[in-house]
Amino acid sequence: MLTNLLHPLLLLRVVAALVVAVLVLVGARVAWQVLLRWQISRASEGQLYLERRAELVATLVQGALVMTIAGLALTVLAADRLAPSIRGAMCAYGVFGSTPTGFFALGTSAASAAACALWVVLHRLDLRLATPALTRRKFLALLFVVPLVLTDLVAQLRFVLDLDFTVVASCCSTSLDGTVAAVERAAPAGARDLASGVALAAALGAVLAALFTRWRPIAAAAYAAGALSLVAAVAAVPAVLWVVAPYAYESPHHLCPFCLLRADAGGLGWPLFASLFTGTLLGVALALVESQKRASGASAEAAAMQRGLARWAAAAWLLALVLAAAPVVRYLVLSGGVSLFGAHG
């Protein structure tokens, strides 16, 4: 319903997606012009003109990056705050689940933030180089960001318009509405242990690989950091769902990761998800820079950049691990070492 746009948070979310789309589209248009006219070897006024247009593109995309991050936070926040207004939704999970596009919109939000961030990494790498060896690639890459942010805009619009705020029957009498219980399936112990084990191992591996990259930026370490970050990010979803959330709520059947965003869980979800997202992005960024090392023709510059990124990647993953472990450790200390899930938990 169009009136859904009257909700301030939803309106802002759509506006943010719109601003991102406009910024990236304008940037892509300029990038396209640059691609058509770029000549690497000549240092002429035309070249200068193009370099300055390139600076414009980068400025616009960096602006878009800030907006996508804000937009991602807004998506989650809006869903969290709207829970009381949606039939059967106890937290953001229910809100996302209440429309077919909900989780998709969350995914596109994260994807466009990630795409803009990785593009900025590529841009920063390009700026470090003495020759514009990566400039063409950089602008070509931007053309792939465009469909992503457009998809996000459409997804946000669909999500916002699909939300059903209608209250059946008059305001005060019951509508006998269906209650969608959040996620009430308890995880099988095996899957739970596997997911948390993989997430823990991969995250630790990502930290080590990042630290190794910082020490010696070799290809294997950088690619390992990227791959382990991705694995850890994927495994983190069930691990948070099945382990961190139940421990945070001290109830083996409370499996909702979105409830971690709420004040009664100390808002743990915000820093936890932020550090997971940042760690994943920086890990992938290490691999991205590695993949461009040869093309850049200046591996020393690329390595210097990797050293900088690696430090933050390791820090983000460490923070994520500490935050994820905090509720588990707290529970185990309070319970004297007894697992929340019984003897074999």
Binding site: A43, S44, E51, E55
Partner: peptide
């Protein structure tokens, strides 16, 4: 920026560098 030609300052080919 020259329309043509180049300038090298202290061995540094300035006009060939990126902006």
């Amino acid at each position: 920026t020259p329309t043509r030609g180049e300038v090298i300052v202290c061995g540094e080919p300035l006009s060939r560098l990126r902006d």
